[in-house]
Design a protein around this nucleic acid. Structure first.
Length: 583
DNA sequence: TATATCTGCGCG
DNA sequence: AAAGCGCGCAGATATA
């Protein structure tokens, strides 16, 4: 065994069609393409086999769905270094407009469906009356080794026909690494100080109310609001009813949103704003959230890698990507451990500078705040204007301050602006655009295309034309932003993937200092939180310094991996602390 | 009665 | 300000 070449790929399937955690079958493929005989293993044999293989050297575990497969391995205390996620890679390859031969891939769309979603333990499968037409059951791919093998071959064949195969292959690796990271993030959890969270809630809302009722402070405020409106029956929680009460009280608003309310001078306004602030905290991240999502000092959100069309991660349950800044102090290292947080300053404009090869824009961000650099270049006169202009350029703003400022950016940074302007032009025509590594945007919906062609008919009305132009511009703004947001997501994946590998190389700390919870990360620095352009590493205090260095070096490495020697500097804002306080 | 859609607001 | 991108979630309301 020790002299045998380490396989490059290890295809993993279940013995039974619909079962993910029972007996396993696998086949190994060497770098030269030689295949082993299939092995059959019990689940327990499989976990120790994986652990043994990982000690031996790197190989890529190929499986249907990392979320299902790897979280089970982690629960068994086993980590892997690399994988290839057939579902996520299918998604990318099937959508790619640079893959020329993918008929078979498109026919195998069952690989887009998560392995868990057809879980037979979720046995409430009986179709309801409306199910038949309204919701065709999505079949997931069969879990067998044969099926995985066939899909893997389809994907390799498709990749081989891609114009940008090298980059696309990098994207498939990065996406798969992201899937591993997401599973590990959930496994490790975010160290969460429930006492601090409780304190924040109590400070802001008062004592925890009995189940089913609102905090007294909110009730009192609601009363004061009804009084100020002179409407004892006014509802504070129902927007339509509140709107009627506001208008009856002479406040001319068209919605009850806080930014519109803030424009009016009326005694009720500050009360309402305060109520809304409290209601938001109470319903979104109150005691109920704490009960549901935090256990044993760990908040375990569920991340969904590749869940956003652009390639960003989404989250499902727990609201990992929407934790309010107000609660950041509850994110707190365990005793003897520290948090190292890093966020990238102005990631998206820097990515734009790199991918467009705009040296002026790269220079504006070199070694400093990019917005300050843009001011220094003379394009605009204040940091605030620079920010509005840059965001406006990436989002496609045409009115207001942004509308005035973006043209100045177009003069100062023509290459960067040409890239986003062209992406927008393609989208307005209904075309496809791709990120730097080759993730392709989805085509416009059929209704969009119908709208456009209807508007070009001679009998089209003015109104038809207007609607068509508006939706065309909307789609253009989407494709404009897609290339930048999507490439930034790729950079972030590369950053985290590199960092993850570096973190595994730290010497484990001694048993005595280990964390009580979780076997896999109890003695190593590990990623604890991710939010588009920000990571938080939970680390034994003695490694904090070296972790900071690893984060910085990983950022530089990600830049090189994607953009080679492009002179773009990805600046980090780094902080080492016990609590992840922000600002 | 259960699901779909809308509103408002949190995050980048 | 929300003009201008991408999300998720809770609660209220609309719909089958």
């Amino acid at each position: 065994m020790s002299d045998a070449p380490i396989p490059t790929w290890c295809i993993v399937g279940s013995k039974n069609e619909n079962e993910n955690r029972g007996a396993i079958q696998l086949i190994e493929i060497s770098a030269a393409g030689e295949r082993s005989e299939p092995k059959s293993l019990s689940w327990a044999e499989f976990t120790s086999y994986v652990a043994e293989c990982e000690r031996e050297g790197p190989r890529r575990w190929v499986w249907h769905d990392t979320a299902a497969r790897y979280s089970a391995l982690l629960d068994a205390g086993v980590r892997v270094e690399r994988c290839y996620d057939l579902r996520l890679c299918h998604q990318i390859l099937a959508a790619s407009d640079s893959v020329s031969a993918k008929t078979e891939l498109l026919a195998a769309s069952e690989w887009l469906v998560a392995a868990d979603s057809a879980d037979s333990t979720h046995s409430n499968n009986e179709p309801t009356l409306f199910d038949i037409e309204a919701r065709p059951r999505h079949r997931t791919a069969p879990a067998t080794l044969d099926a995985a093998m066939l899909e893997f071959e389809r994907q390799r064949a498709a990749l081989a026909t891609a114009k940008n195969a090298a980059r696309l292959s990098l994207l498939l690796s990065a996406e798969s690494a992201g899937a591993l990271i997401a599973a590990e993030l959930t496994h490790a959890g975010v160290p969460w100080d429930e006492t601090e969270h409780n304190r924040i809630l109590t400070d802001s809302l008062g004592e925890k109310p009995p189940l089913g009722s609102k905090p007294e402070r909110m009730q009192a405020l609601a009363l004061a609001i009804r009084e100020a409106l002179g409407d004892p029956l006014a509802s504070v929680d129902s927007p339509p009813k509140l709107l009627r009460s506001l208008r009856a009280a002479g406040i001319e608003v068209s919605s009850t949103s806080k930014w519109e309310l803030a424009e009016h001078e009326h005694p009720v306004v500050p009360l309402l704003l305060e109520y809304k602030r409290m209601a938001r905290l109470f319903t979104a991240n109150g005691w109920a959230w704490l009960d549901e999502w935090v256990h044993d000092g760990r908040y375990r959100p569920v991340y969904v890698p590749g869940g956003v069309v652009t390639g960003r991660w989404a989250s499902s349950g727990g609201g990992a990507l929407q934790i309010p800044r107000q609660l950041r102090p509850a994110l707190c290292a365990d005793p003897g451990w520290l948090l190292v947080s890093a966020d990238v300053s102005q990631l998206e404009p820097r990515v734009l500078a790199a991918m467009s090869g705009d040296r002026a824009m790269a220079a504006a961000g070199a070694g400093k705040d990019l917005y300050a650099g843009i001011v220094e270049s003379g394009a605009v006169s204040s940091r605030q204007d620079a920010k509005i202009a840059v965001l406006g350029a990436m989002y496609g703003s045409t009115t207001g301050d942004a509308g005035r400022l973006v043209p100045r950016l177009r003069l100062a940074f023509p290459q960067a602006m040409r890239l986003v302007d062209q992406a927008a032009a393609v989208g307005e025509q209904g075309g496809l655009v791709s990120t730097w590594l080759g993730r392709t945007s989805p085509p416009p919906a059929d209704e969009w295309l119908e709208l456009q062609s209807a508007a070009s008919m001679p009998e089209a009305s003015r109104r038809d034309e207007e609607i068509a132009r508006r939706t065309a511009r909307e789609f253009g703004r989407f494709t404009r932003n897609f290339v930048v947001q999507g490439t930034a997501a790729e950079w972030a994946l590369a950053w985290m993937a590199e960092l993850r590998l570096r973190l595994t190389q730290f010497e484990p700390i001694s048993e005595g200092q280990a964390l009580a919870s979780g076997p896999v990360f109890s003695r190593h620095p590990h990623l604890a939180f991710f939010l588009h352009d920000e990571v938080i590493v939970h680390t034994p205090a003695e490694h904090a310094e070296a972790v900071s260095t690893a984060i910085t070096e990983s950022a530089a490495k990600a830049g090189k991996l994607l953009f080679g020697e492009a002179p773009v500097d990805f600046r980090l804002d780094l902080r080492v602390s016990e609590r992840a306080l922000k600002d």
